[in-house]
């Protein structure tokens, strides 16, 4: 096995350990549970109304979008925050000091985020299965399609997380600006109400986000065929969905390593120490 491959395998184990550590830490569990509970409450409240022009329950319509949101949240915002934090505390520098440590770090983040997304989806899907109508009415094939879209979506947003995390200087600015961007993305992505019913400029913005396309892809597999009426152009636009998500993934995968390498090159013990000084002064 080549050395970088070996490092990626070490990194995969790193991802598993990091996830287990976060499950053991109470605050992370509380965070997952509260976030998932909030989503469940929204679903519960809208279980009886239907999407205008169709007989599809709003809860059923919303669920795929919420799954997309979880992927984007953990993949982009979560990784960006963690990257900025671990740059500040020296984790990144520590891994830079060992052979192919950065490869291991990236592999570890990927594995960790997969575990995290699977975990938070199970928390939402298990209770939701009892009250959201028509969930998985299309059976096993549909579920497999949904998993495919989730993985493609993950590939589209994870590089984005690395890009955001390497551009911002510290975790606090990722938290502030990043949260603002996330809220805007949620609003324009047509998760809570169909994008087709919104203003044209919102539709344009929404179709620029990977969240919208991932949501659309998931709806195409999870919702009954009749629900297509609520979509833009009354179509699932399957090819377009795959093309856009793939474009995001490729673009990110080209840009992310460049930015990561630039960021890692600038890391040194004294720059980590200087940032820490600044962080301590602000507290």
């Amino acid at each position: 096995m080549s050395a970088p491959m070996y490092a990626a395998r070490c990194g995969a184990r790193r991802g598993r350990i990091e996830f287990m550590n976060s499950v053991r830490a109470g605050q992370d569990i509380a965070y997952y549970v509260i976030f998932s509970l909030a989503l469940l409450v929204v679903l519960w409240l809208s279980r009886d109304s239907t999407v205008p022009g169709t007989d599809v329950s709003v809860a059923t319509f919303m669920l795929p979008g919420l799954l997309a949101l979880q992927v984007v949240f953990a993949g982009a915002f979560g990784i960006a925050t963690l990257l900025a934090t671990e740059r500040e505390d020296g984790t990144l520098l520590r891994l830079k000091a060992i052979p192919y440590g950065t490869v291991g770090y990236v592999a570890g983040q990927l594995v960790r985020v997969c575990f995290e997304i699977a975990f938070s989806m199970v928390i939402v899907l298990l209770p939701a299965a009892f009250f959201v109508p028509n969930l998985l009415s299309d059976g096993f094939g549909a579920a497999l399609g949904a998993v495919g879209y989730l993985l493609l979506g993950l590939l589209a947003v994870v590089p984005l997380g690395f890009i955001i995390g390497s551009v911002f200087k510290n975790p606090r600015s990722v938290g502030g600006w990043g949260m603002l961007v996330m809220v805007a993305v949620v609003w324009v992505s047509g998760i809570f109400s169909p994008l087709a019913t919104m203003a044209t400029w919102v539709q344009i913005l929404g179709q620029l986000t990977p969240t919208y396309w991932l949501g659309l892809g998931l709806r195409s597999t999870l919702l009954p065929e009749a629900a297509v009426a609520a979509e833009i152009d009354g179509s699932w636009r399957t090819l377009m969905t795959i093309a856009v998500l793939t474009a995001w993934a490729i673009g990110g995968m080209i840009l992310a390593p460049v930015l990561l390498r630039r960021m890692a090159r600038r890391e040194s013990g004294s720059s980590v120490a200087a940032r820490r000084e600044k962080a301590l002064q602000r507290v």
Partner: peptide, 20 residues
């Protein structure tokens, strides 16, 4: 990276991997 494997580094201060 082969060179990295032959060099050990202890920096002035760390606070990484706190949960490990």
């Amino acid at each position: 990276e082969e060179w990295r494997s032959r060099v050990g580094v202890v920096l002035q201060s760390w606070r990484d991997h706190a949960r490990w």
